[in-house]
Simulated scan of single mutants.
Amino acid sequence: MSSKRSISISAVLTKEEETLREEDNSNTNPKSTFDFKSYMIHKANSVNQALDGAVSIREPRKIHEAMRYSLLAGGKRVRPMLCIAACELVGGDEPMAMPAACAVEMIHTMSLIHDDLPCMDNDDLRRGKPTNHKVFGEDVAVLAGDSLLAFAFEYLAVSTVGVAPARVIRAIGELAKSIGSEGLVAGQVVDINSEGLKDVGLEHLEFIHVHKTAALLEAAVVVDDILDVTKSSNELGKTAGKDLVADKVTYPKLIGIEQSREFAKKLNQEAQEQLSGFDQAKAAPLIALANYIAHRQN
């Protein structure tokens, strides 16, 4: 899911938008008083509670169990944190941003469920657990993803409070555009069609990542590619080396691991530069998230 769109959605709900800072902030900015670890734990807990309440067990029981299985399977909740932090940056608050944050996470989860299907990436492991279709079957997994996608828009529309209806509509439009045939789907289609191709350039790869995961999370995508090569399945929580087996187009494949890391660093710096005009105390969570994404280990 698009980080740029994620931030745009939450910012639309108040007033503007922008970017992301680190895994352990003492490593990169010892003078900072912002406690990123505490922030991340607090926000993740808030998001998890909201998601748990949003998608409850009801009839038909099996589909809701499948939705909750993947939605509540863990994860760092970076995308919803971006929504909340961006909203707070421009004068909003967490309750105002939470429905948008949850909607983004529901759609992200949908994309993971569908990505893992045998007809797509055919993966057995996600977030350290068997993938949805391995537990519930391919048919229910497809429907669980579909249900999360539909419910994301319903939840954003009916649960957002304290925001002008026109802004909610704009947020829904931004979110829909980011995942359709000119967004996430476009990136996924080009990614699938690129497997095994030998003559693929950086511009082609950039199209995949800009559309599939979006501009402001490009740094995270580059790091994902590096981790797929360098980390084990246990460390990643998903099957390592899948990109190599599928002969996927990745930054490490085209430019090597070290240059990929340099590219991630460059994107991280560019993201932080976009925050230079904002109140630095309010921007601290976004700066910390940028560093976290660029330097994360799983």
Rank of each mutant, 00 (worst) to 15 (best):
A66L: 10
A215R: 13
I192R: 00
S2F: 04
G183M: 09
T239F: 13
A283D: 12
L275Y: 08
A294R: 15
I257C: 03
D228L: 03
T160W: 14
G145M: 12
R261T: 13
S70C: 09
S32T: 15
V189M: 09
L217W: 05
G162P: 01
I63A: 11
K177W: 01
R170I: 03
V189K: 01
T160A: 13
S46A: 07
M81F: 03
R170L: 07
T250D: 05
K43C: 05
H108T: 10
L117Y: 02
Y155F: 14
G196R: 02
V189W: 00
L112E: 09
E258K: 14
A294G: 01
S2Y: 07
T230H: 06
V245W: 00
S194A: 15
A264I: 13
E218G: 04
F153G: 03
E218S: 13
K76M: 05
D52G: 08
S38D: 12
P30R: 06
R68Q: 10
N27G: 02
T109H: 10
S276R: 14
M106L: 11
G53Y: 00
H209Y: 15
E23I: 13
H64V: 01
A97K: 03
N45F: 04
E88C: 14
S159M: 12
A284H: 08
P130K: 07
F34P: 12
I226M: 07
E258N: 15
A264V: 12
G53K: 10
A283C: 09
G137D: 12
L71T: 01
T109R: 14
Y155V: 08
G91M: 02
G256H: 09
T213K: 05
P30Y: 00
M96I: 01
G196E: 12
G74Q: 07
Q280E: 13
S194H: 06
K177D: 11
N268T: 06
C83S: 14
I226W: 01
I41E: 15
A101C: 00
L197V: 07
R5E: 12
Q297N: 11
F207N: 09
K134L: 12
T250G: 07
N132F: 02
F207A: 04
G128T: 14
E94P: 00
L184R: 03
K76D: 03
C83L: 10
K238V: 08
P285V: 10
A141K: 05
E262T: 14
C119T: 13
N48P: 00
S232D: 01
Q274C: 11
Y69W: 11
P130M: 08
S276M: 04
Q188T: 14
P252D: 15
N193Y: 10
K31E: 15
G137V: 11
D224I: 10
L217R: 07
A73W: 06
S260Y: 09
K248M: 12
L89Q: 02
S32C: 07
L205M: 09
S8H: 08
K253Y: 04
A157C: 11
S276I: 04
S6K: 05
D124E: 10
